[in-house]
Computed example of a mutant assay.
Amino acid sequence: MLGANDGIVSTASLALGVAAAGAEHRTILLSCASGLIAGAMSMAAGEFVSVHSQQDTENADLARERAELKNDPGGEQRELAGLYVARGLAPALADQVAAQLMAHDALAAHARDELGLDAAARARPTQAALASAASFTVGAALPMAVAAAAAPAQLIFWVALTSLAFLAALGTLSAWAGGARVWGGIARVTFWGAAAMAVTAGVGACLGVVA
């Protein structure tokens, strides 16, 4: 959702800014295409670096835990049992659970219950980068398609109107998926989207007058 929102807002703002400056239709579309490519690559690179840093931290934690298990397995079992006692298990049962889990997969047990690392939620930099780039591209393609279809004289109106509609739809979907208030989500995303487009269009108009 976040990547798609970014794609809509940034591309629509770019189209409105260039259009307000008096650029030709072809130049507007070229600017949108350039913004789409640059934004998608930026999102992918940023997400890859961020998630890769998270992955490095996770790997360092696992390496440290692996060494501790090798050097002091008894102490690690007591540590794991202590975690279960803190969660409400009786000491005898906690010792039994810790022993059985460590016999099955000691590192996985400590990663999950001590470090909070779930195998299904481990950091995946490449997957995160591709997902961010794809979501941004889908979002950016929407106002770009409207800009391509709209008549030059009406481009600003239609790009602004449809982009706010797209943002409202995404705000609705995001709020519904998260169980939040729908109108609150719509209001936030449309307000800031409208603000970004208005500021960019204003700057473009000023630069166009100066030119």
Rank of each mutant, 00 (worst) to 15 (best):
Q54S: 12
A119M: 11
F157P: 03
L207H: 03
A19G: 15
A19I: 11
Q77F: 13
A198K: 02
R112P: 01
V189Q: 04
L93H: 09
A131D: 11
I28A: 12
Q55R: 11
W183N: 00
L170G: 09
M43P: 13
A121I: 11
S174Q: 00
D72Q: 07
G46H: 03
R78V: 15
T11F: 10
I8W: 07
A12L: 10
V199Y: 05
A44N: 03
T137C: 06
A98K: 05
V182E: 01
A106D: 04
F136M: 06
A145D: 12
A148Q: 07
I37N: 08
L164W: 00
G75H: 11
V97P: 05
V209L: 11
S50N: 12
A153P: 14
L107Y: 05
T27G: 14
L80G: 00
G171E: 04
A196V: 04
D105I: 04
F48I: 04
L16R: 10
T11R: 09
A60Y: 02
G7K: 04
A21V: 07
A134I: 13
A168G: 08
T200N: 01
P73K: 03
L115R: 02
G7P: 12
L164Y: 03
R64P: 15
A165I: 13
A134W: 07
G179L: 02
S10P: 14
L69A: 09
W176L: 06
A90E: 14
L173D: 02
S50I: 07
D61Y: 02
T57L: 09
S132N: 02
H104Q: 01
E68P: 14
G82F: 15
G193F: 00
I28S: 12
R181W: 12
V49I: 14
A81W: 11
L161E: 11
A38N: 15
A38L: 10
A201M: 03
L69F: 14
L62M: 12
I156W: 10
E68G: 12
L2M: 13
